[in-house]
Simulated assay, not measured.
Amino acid sequence: MRSTYPTWFYLPAGVVYGVFFLVPTVAAFYFSLTRWSLFEIEFIGLENFVTFFKEPMLLKSFANTFIFAIVTSGLKVVIGFLLALFLTSRIIARGFLRSVIFFPVLVSTIGVGVTFEVLLDPFDGLVNTALSGIGVQGPGWLTDPNLALLSVALVDVWKGLGLATLIYIAGIVAIPAEYLEAARVDGANASQVLRHVIIPLARPATASVITLSLIGGLRSFDLIWAMTGGGPGFASEVVASAIFKEYQAGFYGLSTAGNVVLFLVVAIIVFPLYRWLNRKEVQQ
């Protein structure tokens, strides 16, 4: 008879997972079907979801959320991969440069948001002041509806780029040297080695970067809230900030329903994408 002794080692992790994930998730699904406050709960079925999808800002916030997630994920993949290639080559002060690239990841997101809100001020900000010094009139980075979301997205890329680069560095370093040497012996040049060896074998790193960046982009709230508050108007409004505004207004059941919708959207997008990115066959 097989011993159940090793199974007990899973118990602490299972308890933590249940208490901090399963219980809150089930509770959120329940409270999304109610009109609740600190003192009373009234079951109202799907009314919160119907109201949530009738909100005028919802369509705009969903569009902004997807734009933000795609832009930030795409830039982190491309720039992170290029930086990883550079930081795994034979360069001087490679360790120092890796630390510099990773440093923004360690900084508080709210701190980054407040700092860049000051730097990007259209009148007194350092960025526009520097541009005016060379005769260029800087735009309203956070006040122009056409630029606000993109400006926040670029700041998010700056902050999260270090993690993407670190993952790519780990993926590139893990490639067996024999593969690179064999490619060079066969006469492959640098671009061919990159295309046929490094990029395919760095696929797990790419999958991790895309997945983490996409989840972070779809759930983004703190940086956007610190820099624009969802404005001007609804120009940089995302689903998470729209949910928070409902909570501020005292519509707790409605905001909980919004959280459930966001959870389902992230799950529906990320899980199939992650499985596709991690399939065993490497397409050539």
Rank of each mutant, 00 (worst) to 15 (best):
L33A: 15
I44Q: 04
T228I: 06
K60R: 15
F43V: 05
G258W: 14
N146K: 13
V77Q: 05
L147S: 07
V260R: 10
L264H: 03
S89I: 03
G95D: 15
L254E: 04
R275D: 03
W225F: 11
V118Q: 11
F81P: 01
G253T: 10
I169E: 04
Y10K: 00
E237K: 05
E237F: 02
V136H: 06
G14M: 13
G171D: 08
F66N: 11
G18H: 00
I269Q: 07
N146R: 12
P232L: 06
R219V: 09
A205M: 00
P200F: 03
F96K: 02
F263E: 02
D222I: 07
V261N: 03
I243T: 10
S73N: 03
E117G: 15
T25P: 02
S73D: 09
I198A: 00
T4L: 13
I91D: 02
A207K: 03
L82M: 09
V209G: 08
T129A: 13
I41R: 12
D144R: 09
G14H: 01
G95A: 14
L46F: 15
A183N: 00
S61K: 13
E40D: 09
V118E: 09
L254C: 07
V239K: 11
T88N: 09
I198R: 01
L223T: 05
I101W: 11
R195Y: 10
T115N: 07
V100H: 12
L277G: 11
A164C: 00
Y247I: 11
E40W: 05
A13W: 07
G162Y: 01
W158S: 06
A182N: 02
A205C: 00
T109P: 02
A13I: 02
K280R: 14
H196N: 08
N278Y: 02
I67V: 15
Y247Q: 15
L194V: 11
W8K: 04
L83V: 05
V118W: 14
I269E: 01
V112R: 11
L59T: 12
G80K: 06
V127D: 01
F9D: 00
I175W: 02
P139V: 05
W225L: 13
A242P: 01
F123I: 04
Y252F: 15
M227E: 08
A148P: 09
L214D: 08
I243A: 08
S73E: 07
G140E: 03
A257P: 06
L218R: 14
A249P: 13
Q248D: 15
G253A: 12
Y274D: 04
L22K: 10
K245F: 14
K54Q: 15
S241V: 10
S220I: 13
G216W: 15
P200Q: 06
E237S: 11
